[in-house]
């Protein structure tokens, strides 16, 4: 079975030879130090109360840490752009899943307040009795 010597490199070759692209040690240690520092920042940030922006700030810090891990530890900054596209696509589709579901959860009582009320104020802690009787409709 003669192997036709189609030796051209794969069609999206990024010009590197066969030698792997190795980052200097300082980059890894620097990224690690930044991550530790940002973890401390995460805890510190949660101490202050920014009101409704609390979650946003916490997620922002987490995203910075995530970006550091993805770009340097996972080598995405020097690799084929296709892998970055795959990661960003997965995050895009996560947001596609979140947005309409949360819109639905929070606008059920837009036209009629009664649709927003959950009837069962049920708690399983044995102390509370099960309040299952449907409250009379508010006129």
């Amino acid at each position: 079975m003669t192997q036709a010597n189609a030796t051209h490199s794969s069609n999206h070759g990024d010009g590197h030879g066969d030698e792997p692209h190795v980052l200097p040690m300082q980059v890894y240690l620097g990224v690690w130090a930044a991550l530790v520092f940002l973890t401390i920042v995460t805890v510190a940030v949660s101490r202050f109360d920014f009101g409704s922006a609390n979650t946003f700030v916490a997620l922002l810090v987490a995203t910075i840490k995530g970006a550091l891990v993805v770009l340097y530890f996972m080598h995405l900054r020097y690799d084929n752009k296709l892998y970055l596209i795959i990661l960003l696509a997965s995050l895009l589709f996560v947001s596609i899943f979140f947005t309409p579901t949360l819109i639905d959860l929070h606008t059920r009582d837009a036209l009629d307040p009664i649709k927003g009320r959950t009837m069962y104020k049920l708690s399983t802690s044995k102390a509370k009795s099960q309040d299952a009787a449907p409250a009379p409709a508010a006129h």
């Binding site: 309409p100 819109i103 639905d104 929070h106 606008t107 059920r108 837009a110 036209l111 649709k115």
Partner: peptide
């Protein structure tokens, strides 16, 4: 299914 009308519009 009890979904909000606004979400129904979008979908």
């Amino acid at each position: 299914a009890g979904q909000s009308e606004i979400a129904g519009m979008i979908f």
